[in-house]
Computed example of a mutant assay.
Amino acid sequence: MSKRKLGIMTGSGTTKQPRHWSLGLLGSMEDPESIVKKTERIVVIRDKYPKAKIHYLVLPYEDINSIYKLTEKHTSLLEEFGKLYEELKEKHKESNLRAGFHAVPSMQRLHMHVISTDMISPCLKTKVHWNSFTTRFFIPYQDVLKGIKEDGGIKKISNELHKSLMSTELICNQCNFKPKNMPQLKEHLLTHVK
């Protein structure tokens, strides 16, 4: 299919290469339909493929690729992430929200997930989706902030640990139920809805 048919045009009418999917957050940061809140340094957007009833992404305007590029100079930026997380918790008092970062993010540009623990969503489809939010692969916001303040950075996880976390057996994040597969888990999650 031609680029022209895909509708990829520059302002001058000439075609340009489409962005790689991993850069998709950059477009969402500018999309008024996605934006929930903006500050001078940060934007909060709705996740396009939410893995729970409530799922936001908190991103800096500064071009920081991942948590592994954070240093002590980013402490105040991360603290502002925390303030926005607190605002979202206040807005969604009826939900239990968590904030954290994926140890190996699939999307470029640093982003913090703020997600409800219900994990009810048609976009939650695979074991990898589940394990990326319910194992140590999901690094809590407070742990990242502490690592930056105390150690000056975050240590990368090994490929072996990454594989191990993604292949962890399914277990409900709200009780000890161990489903045989994702459909069974998704059905079970509905029993926790109040």
Rank of each mutant, 00 (worst) to 15 (best):
K3C: 09
R4Y: 01
K5L: 13
G7D: 06
I8C: 12
M9Q: 13
G11F: 11
S12I: 13
T15V: 09
P18D: 03
R19Q: 14
R19V: 07
E30H: 13
E33I: 04
E33P: 04
S34Q: 12
S34W: 00
I35C: 01
T39P: 02
R46P: 04
D47W: 06
I54K: 13
L57T: 11
L59K: 09
P60N: 04
Y61G: 02
I64E: 07
I64V: 13
S66P: 02
L70C: 03
E72Q: 14
K73H: 10
H74I: 06
L78C: 07
E80Y: 09
G82K: 12
L84H: 12
Y85H: 13
K89Q: 15
E90Y: 04
S95K: 14
F101H: 06
H102M: 09
A103D: 03
Q108D: 14
Q108T: 12
R109H: 14
H111Q: 09
S116N: 02
I120T: 05
I120F: 03
I120P: 02
S121Q: 05
H129C: 04
H129P: 04
H129M: 09
W130M: 03
S132I: 06
F133R: 05
T134P: 06
T134V: 12
F137H: 15
Y141N: 10
D143F: 02
V144Q: 02
V144I: 15
V144H: 02
L145H: 04
G152P: 05
G153N: 09
K156Y: 02
S158Y: 07
N159P: 04
S167Q: 14
E169G: 01
I171A: 10
C172L: 06
C172N: 05
N173T: 04
C175E: 08
F177G: 00
F177C: 04
K178N: 08
K178Y: 03
K178M: 08
N181T: 11
P183H: 09
L185Y: 09
L185W: 08
